[in-house]
Design a protein around this nucleic acid. Structure first.
Lengths: 208, 208
DNA sequence: ACACAATTTAATCCTGTGATTAATTTATTT
DNA sequence: AAATAAATTAATCACAGGATTAAATTGTGT
């Protein structure tokens, strides 16, 4: 189960600042967030941000690294499990990811926008365990290809398609909503539909 | 044929500024772009930016509106043509869009990032002709559904999947490249592969 | 060649905002 | 209770960066 940290009730001042920072950073991004916004959102004195976290930049780095790693790990965790079949994995990933993003809809755009600046520096600091995850999944994927269940030989295409179908509508949300006169519940309704359909679509396209 | 304005050789000072602004805005986004960057990139004096374009904000608005409308129009143009079949449309869209984005790979993330701030204000200023385009395409799509070629009844899902499969890898590029140790030509190679495969995938998933 | 407008330049202004400081209050230790 | 440390506050600093100004240059029409 994916558990969002953003829901944890903060009690210490340090945690209050961090949660407020997360909210404001998610909403406006690093560049448009003023330390005064964070102070106001958390109801603390401006100077405490620098007292507890050395700078706006350091506070931000903590937030984005946590966000990134939990976002990525929650997929890897599922992919890495040798017990569950690929089909089941797809269902789990689609369902839990869409639920997560509906709860925290700013995360995908936050990640994309902020990663534009210094991706290498940031990603270098991420404690990622790709290798094992990738190797486990590649093996499983390769078996599916060999046994003829899946035609597309490259697991990267598979993953791009899967994640893309899940995440892209949230990234394009403003455009989507405007161009089709959708309100939020229309949009969420569409996303709920996709929980059921993406696995079917993926299955169909992968053995085409 | 999609023709990028960014390749037009500027001659007047005003055009020089605009092209430089486009380049820098695409690369760094509005917030991280200093007017001094634009001045340097175009080799003109700082004050000329405010002389020709009233402010950084107004210059930016021109750039992003041009970018957005040409990006959107280039799809609508294809969708709106009643002569071409849906299958052909898919091929044309996939092929020309991937080529366009490979040439100007910063555009998708630029649009997503900048649209996060004031989407409504910006989109309201866009001279979009959705209605006609949508109605033509909806009609054609409905026919395909009625005749059983396509199973998925909602054209929005179709479009989200199509555009998502095209655009998402470019948006996730830094993450993708890092996680899989790809260099740029590896990445572009993958995208070239997708030109052929997306139409096949789309076809398969749509009648699943 | 002259007058007037358009363009360009260097220098300066001014606000927003991240950070710091010194003083004050609260908590902890002995 | 006294002493020391930790936390909090209000006030101020410093400077990056968008904008403006006034002077200098170039262009255009007569």
């Amino acid at each position: 189960m994916i558990q969002s940290k953003a829901l944890k009730k903060p009690d210490t001042t340090e945690e209050k600042i961090k949660e407020a920072a997360r909210i404001v950073f998610y909403r406006k991004g690093y560049a448009y967030t003023r330390t005064r916004d964070i102070a106001e959102e958390s109801g603390i004195n401006l100077a405490l941000i620098n007292y507890y976290f050395r700078s706006k930049a350091r506070l931000f780095e903590i937030i984005i690294l946590e966000t990134l790693s939990s976002f990525i790990e929650s997929i890897l965790e599922i992919l890495i499990d040798e017990q569950t079949s690929i089909e089941t994995k797809i269902q789990i990933i689609v369902s839990s990811y869409i639920d997560l993003i509906i709860k925290e809809p700013e995360i995908p755009t936050f990640i994309v926008s902020e990663l534009r600046n210094n991706p290498n520096e940031l990603l270098a600091k991420l404690p990622l365990r790709h290798k094992t995850a990738r190797s486990v999944f590649s093996k499983q994927y390769k078996e599916a290809v060999d046994s003829g269940i899946i035609k597309e030989p490259n697991p990267l295409h598979f993953l791009m398609n899967l994640i893309g179908m899940i995440v892209f509508p949230f990234i394009a949300k403003p455009l989507l909503m405007k161009a089709n006169n959708l309100n939020i519940s229309d949009f969420n309704q569409l996303m709920q539909e996709r929980k059921k359909r993406i696995p079917i679509w993926i299955k169909a396209m992968m053995d085409a």
